[in-house]
Amino acid sequence: MTEQTHRRVTSADVARLAGVSRATVSYVMNDTPAQTISPSTRTRVLDAAARLGYSPSAAARTLRTGRSDVVLCLLPDWPIGPEVGSMLGNLSTALARHGLTLVVHPGNREDRPIGEIWKAITPAAVIAYTDFSPGEIVAMRSAGVALVVASLGRGAQPDRRELAVPQQLIGRQQAGHLIAAGHTRLGYAYPDDDRVRIFAEPRLAGVRAECRDRQVGGPATETVALDPEQAASAVRRWHAAGITAVCAYNDEVALAVLAGVRLEGRSVPADLAVIGVDDIPPARLAAPALTTVTTDQVAVAAYLSATVVAAINGRPGPAVPTDDLVHLVRRESA
Rank of each mutant, 00 (worst) to 15 (best):
P281A: 08
V104W: 08
A146S: 14
T322G: 02
P113E: 03
P82N: 03
T93H: 08
R67Q: 14
L255V: 03
D271K: 06
R161K: 02
Q167D: 15
V207S: 05
R42T: 15
V300G: 11
V268Q: 10
V71C: 06
S133D: 02
P202H: 12
D13N: 06
A125C: 13
H183R: 14
A232T: 00
S133K: 12
P39L: 04
P219A: 08
G155A: 14
T10F: 07
R284Q: 14
A139V: 07
R42S: 11
A311Y: 01
R195F: 09
V277M: 09
E162T: 14
R315V: 01
V138T: 14
V326F: 06
M140D: 03
N313V: 02
T10H: 07
I312F: 08
P106K: 13
I37R: 12
V70M: 04
I312L: 07
G135F: 00
L163Y: 11
D192R: 03
H327W: 04
N90V: 01
Q174H: 03
S40C: 01
L100I: 06
G19L: 12
V326N: 07
A128Q: 11
E264F: 03
G217S: 14
T322D: 10
G317I: 09
S26E: 00
T294Q: 13
R64K: 07
M140V: 03
V138P: 02
G135P: 00
T41F: 00
R44N: 08
L147T: 03
R154H: 13
T36E: 11
I179A: 10
G260W: 09
V298R: 14
L91N: 07
E222H: 14
V145M: 06
G19K: 07
G218M: 05
P56I: 10
A273H: 11
R315T: 10
L285N: 02
A50P: 00
R7E: 14
L52N: 10
R7V: 09
Q4K: 10
